[in-house]
Design a protein around this nucleic acid. Structure first.
Lengths: 189, 189, 189, 189
DNA sequence: ACTCGCGGGACATCCCGTTTAT
DNA sequence: ATAAACGGGATGTCCCGCGAGT
């Protein structure tokens, strides 16, 4: 990590946004360079492995951002139900703010992965694993039995991921809210 | 006229498969033509609007296939829990059989959609709506109160969609099974 | 010639218009069929030699239309100056009416011709020769010495062709009017 | 930087030649690249707007070449008649040398322009305006009254443009020589 | 640390012409 | 006379990756 140049981190941030909105194959360097105002010559200096390397870093950045959302929710929430509410609320707000284009920052790439994109698949996997760990911890801290917490954390992630997908495709927050209500009951049962 | 229109439907079927595995932008005509053994000159005869038109038709076909899975599960299942089991089981089997490449046949495209791909987004939306209707009907037929059935149907779809995503990215059926168990309890409560 | 079908003559008329506006290479069958509302299967029934055959016929039709303009002007004009005025006036009106897209109906194709398009070049050549004959006749009939009439007819055609080109490119009738005035003086000298 | 930018100007020069001979729509990148021995990958580096941008530059280059012909003729010519002779002579020589394929370097493109090709139309317009200015200056310098010089300059251009068209279509220099003789008399009157 | 220019393959699209069947 | 389907080559465009030159 260390001290990255401005150009480099601007490229990563822009790429994260574009991957979230369009996926890997629809995102070209032309757009990345234009939106991050970076020079073409810098790509293979900063990212010798090319597009995949840049994408992996962008996915990690985007994943970490959501991790922080979960941590903040965990710090602020009283009970498990409120935790779910805060997390879903933050995601729903982002989706709506972006005109239903920015859902889960790793889902699109995760679904695009083929055998030639293993590093990307792995990066997505780690992001989900990280979120699951954080959620399970937060639930355990609220008195849920550890094994049950692990199960519930996975359930929350899957349902929210699916709800983000449906909400985006329908251009309507309803699925997110409906799922939030169900999950609230589930985790507080 | 020959034995035609065979070509056309072969193209649609092949495209459906490729969209499921790779998404829209990673799927090129070269691959579609090669795998469906179709002549290049026929593309714009059969699909004057080009790739999007073909993709819309492929998505509808793929959506209808899952609709039939749901209907068969509804016909065979005793209670609501068994219904969920059968649906998830079929999807999990497909995912595993394909080496974790064939998850939901419309999710990838749904997440790739930008403003210039409205017809695709709409097609995905309709597919999900259709599934939701079928599931809600099946639950109502098993004694669930209609409004609750609608909610549960959406919940089932979102959780399964998310589970298909996690399972694919993790290359492991565990999320699907875990979600199936939770949903079984939820719909039979 | 004889009695052509409706479809056939509609195709020729539409093609004439498109050749005048866009030239040969920019005019495709798709557009011809759409604008003439003709069925695709008719092309090679009516025009076995394909696009060039259709274009040759269209050029002849368009050439004959201008020939009639010249003949009408000759019939109505008093002196040679008025003759020039009437011809240029008709062409200028057509150019303006079409939003500066319809200049000379054969010039574009004439300039596009390569060695593989000999029939087209010849058709254009004949059109110009026809116009020159008609103009020379009309001038001779007004007392101009035959040899001089031939020269002046050619001069009128070249200057008007050039003026149509400049007027179109400039989107302004000025070059046509200026040229008309000069030619009037020239032919009445 | 190597010996670069050589490629770029070679592309422009080749394009100018092809536009003169075939027009815009008949000129493809394949031919441009082959005849200028340029790498395919450089097109959109040197000309981000694509074919139109390249064509505009080619038209300007070709226009400037004729401008120099006019300036040289003006420097060398004694009276206005000789000026016309020298200009027409140079154009006629080029036309004949090329086997009646290279007439006016901008006329074909000028006539092909549709609404989607505005930059091309404008480039042609400017070329003609430039020639007209140079010719008018040269005539004024030879004692012609300024307003009359402007008119005559336009007349010379239109007649020569038309003559280049007829000569090309007829594959015969006669129209050019005939027009040259008439113009000589006109400008020295 | 960064840039210019190359390199050439792939993309979706659209072309004109033909064949086979009415 | 027309239709349906093929046939495949060509179009302009855009892609990602590299290397020589500071």
């Amino acid at each position: 990590m260390g001290r990255t140049t401005d150009t480099r981190s601007r490229m990563v941030r822009t790429t994260a946004e574009l991957l979230q909105r369009q996926g890997f194959h629809a995102t070209g360097f032309a757009q990345i360079l234009a939106e991050s105002d970076a020079p073409r010559g810098s790509i293979y200096f900063h990212f010798p492995q090319g597009k995949q390397e840049l994408a992996v870093e962008a996915l990690r950045l985007a994943g970490a951002r959501i991790s922080r959302v979960i941590q903040r929710a965990a710090a602020a929430a009283g009970d498990a139900g409120e935790l779910v509410d805060r997390v879903v609320g933050a995601l729903a707000a982002g989706l709506e703010r972006s005109g239903y284009t920015e859902g889960c920052p790793v889902a699109t790439v995760g679904l695009e992965t083929a055998s030639s994109m293993e590093p990307l698949r792995r990066a997505c996997d780690e992001v989900y694993a990280d979120w699951q760990r954080l959620l399970a911890q937060a639930l355990t801290a609220r008195g849920v039995e550890p094994e049950r917490a692990a199960t519930l954390a996975t359930m929350v992630i899957t349902a929210v991921e699916g709800a983000l997908l449906l909400a985006r495709v329908r251009q309507d927050q309803a699925p997110l809210q409906l799922v939030a209500a169900e999950l609230r009951r589930l985790v507080t049962a």
